[in-house]
Write a protein that binds this DNA or RNA. Sequence first.
DNA 1: TTGACAGGCAAGTGTCTACTTGCGTAACGT
DNA 2: ACGTTACGCAAGTAGACACTTGCCTGTCAA
Lengths: 93, 93
Amino acid sequence: MGDVFKALADPTRRIILDELTDRNGQTLFEICSRLATKHQLGSSRQAISQHLDVLETAGLVETRREGRYKFHYINTGPLEPIIERWLNRPERP
Amino acid sequence: MGDVFKALADPTRRIILDELTDRNGQTLFEICSRLATKHQLGSSRQAISQHLDVLETAGLVETRREGRYKFHYINTGPLEPIIERWLNRPERP
DNA sequence: TTGACAGGCAAGTGTCTACTTGCGTAACGT
DNA sequence: ACGTTACGCAAGTAGACACTTGCCTGTCAA
């Protein structure tokens, strides 16, 4: 299991999560073309593939293979506990 | 304004936020000594000072000077919107 | 005023990381 | 069978980042 925070540290990976939030279950090539058009991101296929690996290792993305297609799904599970770690506590004297 | 996600990417900085959650308004030397004993962190003063700068640039820590002391306070404000960015949306087909 | 204390500034170093480059493999259409 | 499509693997590179090192500034107590 990778580091969720480090996975979120990269802006491109956050845009990928935005894209999967907008349309869940995309393939690698779909994500590539949609990022290029909608977000003006010139990232290569290999770059985005490596980003997806990082997101998957962190548990933020799950995949399902079907023939030669690999569909990517966002998983918000690891997101919830990471913020409440610092909430519900202090006030400023 | 710095990147909140990048500020959270480093484990030492997260422990610093833990420490400020436990006891708000500490000085640099307080944080150093308490991290050394409670968390077995051998980070130097300069290292922690630089981490505090990153956290302050990201808006996660605010400071107040008083004579030769500088007190550090956690600010959870930037934490709340960053998660809901990806919530309230998709389900898995 | 002198020394100790709390912190700041800035250059240098090693490691990590995002990205590229190039090739390889499996699935599908015709 | 053959070319195309969708994706994987792995080495190399440039830049970012965490940390160190060394020195400096300001504050307080004696």
